[in-house]
Structures are given as structure tokens and as C-alpha cells.
Write a protein that binds this DNA or RNA. Structure first.
Lengths: 229, 229
DNA sequence: AACAGCGTATAATAAATATCATAAGAATTT
DNA sequence: AAATTCTTATGATATTTATTATACGCTGTT
């Protein structure tokens, strides 16, 4: 984890989160901002810890997860910049309900939650912008989990591959940012079955595998498996 | 579905949703309100239809569901008054993403969405109250689905029974508001397995069953199954 | 009254998934 | 460099869950 500096005026995310925040409010918010870098694998927020910051992602990729009593992790979702990530329960909870971990090198902008809250309580358009983002982010999570739930093992694996290919990397070839075990934690199946199914897709010439590098060679069939298989 | 009248001043939910809305705003919002009654089984909102209304529940119980391509339903969650129900995507989508159906006789207060939106955009405290409610409702859905996901058949059935007993009816004895098939649609298992598991619980003297009437006779064991079995 | 449709119920069998065991390569620690 | 741990991989077996079939009671319809 390292710190870097940036200018809020030139921030590419200003228009997304703060389009209705006026200049004098903006400087109040930005004065004590910190931009932090997290390397792949580093924890950004920890389940159970008090929420003191308002964070948004500027670059990278993270996973949201939660541990059960036995210490086994479940992955709730992944988020990239412009998604709303660590903010999900920021306004409705005193403590983080999920952990957020970088699965690629990630840059996060950290603001003071109380100051952001203060301005949201005074600036209705800002509050509505926040609500819009939170709603979209949570809707996406709910719909994605619902889609996974109605599929079987192969369909779930196909879903995950297409998710990274089409939604995250926008490329038929990509490096999986997570391990087979993490895929299992996401789709609710065992690691062995994830590995087996990927091997099966490889044998059926649907994908090529080189360690974490995946190439989707038959997207049509993969989509068919995701939708019906 | 029938219409009844009520007074917003005396509404028990005023303090929950509109505590920061001033009198003159309140009358603007309430002037064209409609209170509707839905009988058990009636549809309140339909997936895909345009969102024109801002609704909140005053009494009853509803299910949120979504149909897949084959017409098979998945139940996302249940909501009772003080939950936020049909509003989940009100501020982030033009169309309902889910259907809402009464599973008990239900009273809903219907306001004009544009008017509510207008006031939220002018009244930051009101906007923040709405955000708080939406966040809490969606958080609950995400966490509940996550809890179900990590359990097996028996644990899921136990979870559902405890959910209705402890969270909805606050009683060891209650009438299931949904069919075995709907339980299956909620937990992602087949109807037969739901029926079989309930029978098994009955044989093991954990519950008593009289049609839709359930009595939990060994809550400790049921909780144990929900947590570990 | 006869009938169809639906929810509940149970059993036998088939299919999907988990568990257990083993092993080899990669990454990390000593 | 050796040792340890983690990840990927595969097979055999056990367990869980789905499918298919059958039946019965209830409700509403003709």
C-alpha cells in the first residue's frame, strides 16, 4: 500500500460522483483526501471494522467477500472503477459488512466519511447522485447472484469466464485475476469441480488455458452453456 | 385490488419515510396519493413495466421475484412493512426489474414518483433518508442470499422456517404464506426436495405440519441445522 | 357427478456435485 | 538450496440433489 497525490479538479471521476458538488464544497471534501495504491492481494477494508472513510476506486479490480463462522470465504462480487465498491453500506451501517481486497493493483481515493455525509445532507443533488450509484451497484450484485443461482456448475463457470471476458476485460483473451478456489468461492461450488470443468472446456476446445491465462476460442458455445447448460 | 383512504398526517410510516419532509412539501406529495389493497396472490408490480410510482407498504407481506427465459420464477426476497420493497430500483431504472406479489393481504401507499423525486432533489435530508432505507433493504437481500447460498438443502429449509418464525411472524407457530414450490423458488432447490425435507423434519419431531400451518417444536435443533447442517 | 388442475406426498432411479486421495508444479519461506 | 505451502490437476468413491413416476386430497369448472 502506498500513497500518491492527484488533483481533484482533473480527476476523471469528478463528473461521476461530484457533478453537483460546487467548488467550495469540493475543496472542503478534497482538502484531506488521500489516494492510496494497493498491490494485488492486499486488503483494502476489513469486514467488521468501523467505517470512517468514503472510498471510490480510480483504477484496478477488487473483490467483495465475507467470511463465515468456519473462516470460509464467500465472494459476493467484483468491482472495477466507476462501480461503487466499498460504499455499499457506508450510509446504513457503522461497520463494514464485507471485506474488500485488491485482485489487481488498485488505486483508491479516500475521503472523510463525515465530511462527505455533511455535504450530502446539505446538497440534495449530490445525495441523489450517491443514491443512484448505490442503487445501480447493489442491483447489479443482486441480479448477478440471481443469474448464477439458477445455473448449474458448467453454466456458472461459463458465466464467470464471460463476465471477465466481456464485462471486465472486453477481450477474448485475458488473465484470470483470481484463483480456481476464488472462482469456487464466488459460484458456490468446490475448487476441484471448478478445475475439472475448466479442463473439460479445454478438452472440448471451448477455451485454451495457460495457467491463469484464458483464451475463449468458442464464445458461441460458451454463451450457450452459460444460458442453457 | 381495492382503494381506501387514509390521512398522511396520522400515517404510522410518516416518521419513517418523511421525517424530514416539511408540511407544505408533504401536502404536495400526499395530494394525489392512492392507498390500494391487494389480496393474497395479486400482483402489485410487474417486471419490465415502466416505473411511474413510488410505493411503500403499510401492511401485509409480499414477495419479490424474477422470471427467467423459460418462465421459471426465482424469488429474490420477502418484504414486510417498513422494508422498502418495490422501490429498490426506483431511482436507478426506468423499468421494474422485479415483480412484486402479495403473499398476504397487503396495503400499499402509492405516490407519484416524479413528485417524490422532485422533493428528494430539493430536500437533502429526505434524500438521505431514502438512501438509508434503500441501502438497508438491499444489504439485507444480499446478506440473506449469501447465507442461503452457503447452506445445503436442509440448512436452507431450516433457514426459511426460522426466517418466517423469527423475523416475520415472531412466533413458533405460523401459517406459511407460500407454497412448497415457492420455497423451492426461493432457496434454489426442487419442490419435491422441499416437501421431502419438511416431512423429514416432521418425522424427526423438529416441526409439526398441518398443511400450511407450521409449529416449530425443537427450535434449538432447527437452528443447529440452519447453522451447521 | 365427472373432470381437470394444482398442491402435497412418497419412492425409485438417475444425475450432479462433494469428498477423499494422490501428485506435480509454482510460489514462498527457511 | 531445501523445505513448506499453495495451486492446479485428475481419478475413485460417496453423498446430495434432481428427475420420473405415481397417488391422493382439494378446488373450481363443466
Amino acid at each position: 500500500m502506498g500513497e500518491t497525490s492527484c488533483s481533484c479538479d482533473k480527476c476523471q471521476l469528478k463528473s461521476l460522483f461530484f457533478s453537483h458538488v460546487e467548488a467550495h464544497e469540493m475543496s472542503d471534501i478534497c482538502d484531506i483526501k488521500v489516494e492510496k495504491q494497493y498491490s494485488k492481494g492486499e486488503t483494502i477494508t476489513n469486514e467488521g471494522e468501523p467505517i470512517r472513510e468514503f472510498m471510490y476506486m480510480k483504477a484496478g479490480l477488487v473483490k467483495l467477500s465475507k467470511s463465515d463462522i468456519d473462516g470460509k470465504d464467500q465472494i459476493i462480487s467484483f468491482s472495477k472503477p466507476f462501480d461503487f465498491v466499498s460504499l455499499l453500506s457506508v450510509f446504513s451501517s457503522k461497520k463494514y459488512k464485507y471485506s474488500v481486497t485488491a485482485i489487481e493493483d488498485t488505486t483508491v481515493c479516500i475521503l472523510d466519511l463525515d465530511i462527505v455525509k455533511k455535504h450530502a445532507q446539505q446538497n440534495a443533488m449530490f445525495a441523489m447522485d450517491l443514491m443512484l450509484h448505490i442503487s445501480e451497484a447493489t442491483d447489479k450484485i443482486i441480479l448477478d447472484n440471481l443469474a448464477i443461482k439458477r445455473k448449474h456448475l458448467k453454466g456458472r463457470i461459463a458465466h464467470v469466464l464471460l463476465y471477465f471476458s466481456e464485462y471486465i476485460y472486453k477481450n477474448d483473451e485475458f488473465e484470470l485475476p483470481i484463483s480456481r478456489r476464488e472462482i469456487a468461492e464466488y459460484i458456490g461450488m468446490t475448487t476441484e469441480n471448478v478445475i475439472r470443468t475448466l479442463s473439460e472446456f479445454r478438452k472440448d476446445k471451448i477455451i485454451k488455458i495457460f495457467g491463469k491465462d484464458i483464451l475463449i476460442s468458442d464464445k458461441k458455445r460458451l454463451k450457450n452453456i452459460s444460458d442453457f447448460g
